[in-house]
Nucleic acid binder design. Structure first.
Lengths: 342, 342
DNA sequence: GCCAAGTATGTTAGCGTTAACGGTTGTAGG
DNA sequence: CCTACAACCGTTAACGCTAACATACTTGGC
């Protein structure tokens, strides 16, 4: 049950080569399916490798070949559903390219991002996919100097380093404002996260305010939270806000989870949704598909973003560009059941 | 905006050494904070490295030193909340050990697990944390031969390879059965995933049946699903099952998400919970804290599991053992609002 | 003033693999 | 029978870094 204490020397190509009676080079060729090897020797080598339980050393291989099959994927968090989704679409798209994603998490901290980036670049990946276009100067410099394709994802509002794939959160907020106003709501509250480093949420709010301003409307109330279960926070904040501003007729949430919390609170309290009170979130989380009342939301194209980013890194992008590609996707509004139809 | 085409030679220690007028070795020492270097040269070197934008090459470093600061973490999925939780607690615990987790995802496929393991071991990590105790013979062999600490997590029901940290899902199911029976429920249905490879869900069900059997009760009905939004599936399955077996008085769900879906369906349909109908899930997802009715569940100790596993890998385990450690944690029942009190 | 014991740096030899090239054999075509 | 060329396999020299040892220069104790 316990792992053996004995420190027998780790296996190398040489061991396989000796066991199969061919040169190390030939073993290497067999194991990589590269170059010409006769079926007979191939078989011999594979057998020996298997019998010994040999696992190639990619560290040495990467050093010698100057090639690494890793792609760094740097995201702020794994604990909400949005980034895992992107990640899995990256992963799927990379599936048979020989490339492998490696994840780093920054917790929305620019300093942590810098550290994670440094750490990852020191493994010389063949590409970087990184969330957001805001980075410390040092991070930008590292990305620029790395000499590898870089794709900044999620957000196109800003100056990219190399390629960019995402949506305009500013315009997403703006469109949501327009839709809400078109539906006849006028006293609008905003509920979001207390995270100065969540630039995308910030841009949505800015765009949202801009959209309201065009119609001569100002945000009637705002409420922010940090930490805790988003669903519960959505509840609490909604209660707080509606106690404070009972005349509101719409609540815009910075994400679907707190939106769902708010929705549940409204339903529990017999509030007429969407008649007296409209609600909307952001992200298009399919996690929430099972709610009896579907929350209005905006699809953030997460899967598509991951896919496109992976294509750019793997050189399979449609465009055939060699870098500097900017792809802006169009988020679609899903009015669900919480915005009244006109 | 586009990354430079120019292929200037990548920076090496030699570049920094030339720029700062000392040997490569001294630069190496400075950059790793190892050995004696005078403050003056240290400063000189750091400045040169920064100016050049040098990022060390860990591939070469690892090959030379035969040390790699990576810990492979192999899990079935990132798209439910349970593994990200474990992952982040591993990550936190490893924070200042110099070790870095690297994630691999198997999608509950033993073959994929084998591939991912092979790939990861080829980078010669200094430890492996892997979900479950069921692996292909080849995977087991690789883990045994790797000569590094291995921690199998989540599940202690089975034969481990080296160290094991988890709970007994069999006993978790059994305890849930006992609690349900003690609360007076008798006609019990089970709703779960159609995943033969989810051994933990299977063991919970087995333990659950065993618990019922002790009281002379059999499962009255079962329903399974695959794919889709768990919340929505929970709804659908609940409806299906209650149409088919209207006399049921308890529904046991294999996870909290489908449980929550079922709970919402019951509430929407005016079913008296927990009076006429009891419900329970599994996992203790804090995500669901915001529901108006708290689903009965069982805490799977996810954070604790991640922490202990990381401690074993980093050699900071309390026990001081050198491997072969088995830690069984005790899941706690949270009756929530969906099991009636006696 | 000389030796012991640091302190600060440099030198050498790999780490395990692969790129690049070289050699040997076999085989077809003239 | 000789050339041309392919198929197969081996040899050599890196890749960029660090362990281990070697070397110079200091310091202080007696």
């Amino acid at each position: 049950m316990s792992r053996p204490i004995e420190t027998r020397r780790p296996l190398t190509l040489r061991d396989v080569s000796e066991a199969s009676g061919v040169s190390e080079m030939t073993v290497s060729r067999v194991l990589r399916n590269r170059g010409d090897v006769s079926d007979a020797t191939r078989e011999k080598v594979l057998q020996a490798a298997k019998a010994l339980g040999y696992v190639p050393n990619k560290i040495a291989g990467a050093l010698a070949s100057q090639r690494v099959n890793l792609v760094a994927v740097i995201i702020p968090s794994l604990s909400n559903l949005v980034f895992p989704k992107v990640l899995s679409s990256v992963s799927d798209e990379l599936e048979d390219t020989g490339l492998q994603p490696v994840v780093g998490v920054t917790n929305y901290s620019p300093e942590k991002e810098e550290q994670v980036l440094y750490e990852m670049l020191s493994w010389r990946p063949s590409g970087v996919i990184i969330a957001g276009v805001e980075h410390t100067p040092a991070s930008r410099a590292m990305l620029q100097n790395a000499g590898i394709p870089v794709v900044e994802i999620m957000d196109v509002d800003g100056e990219g380093i190399d390629s960019v794939v995402g949506i305009s959160h500013r315009r997403a907020g703006l469109h949501m404002a327009e839709a809400i106003i078109a539906a006849g709501y006028r006293k609008i509250g905003f509920l979001g996260t207390k995270m100065p480093e969540d630039h995308r949420a910030r841009k949505r709010l800015e765009g949202f305010k801009e959209g309201l301003a065009k119609a001569g409307i100002e945000l009637a109330d705002t409420e922010f939270y940090a930490g805790g279960s988003a669903l519960a926070k959505g509840r609490e904040m909604t209660e707080t806000m509606l106690k404070r501003s009972p005349d509101l007729d719409f609540l815009y949430y910075s994400n679907d989870m707190i939106g769902a919390g708010g929705l549940l609170w409204c339903l529990d309290n017999g509030i007429d949704v969407p008649g007296k009170m409209g609600l909307a979130g952001f992200n298009g989380l399919e996690l929430l598909d099972g709610l009896s009342v579907r929350l209005a939301t905006m699809n953030a194209c997460r899967a598509e973003i991951g896919r496109k980013a992976a294509q750019i890194i793997s050189g399979r992008s449609q465009s055939g560009m060699i870098g500097g590609e900017v792809i802006e996707l169009e988020p679609t509004l899903d009015p669900g059941d919480t915005i009244r139809k006109r």
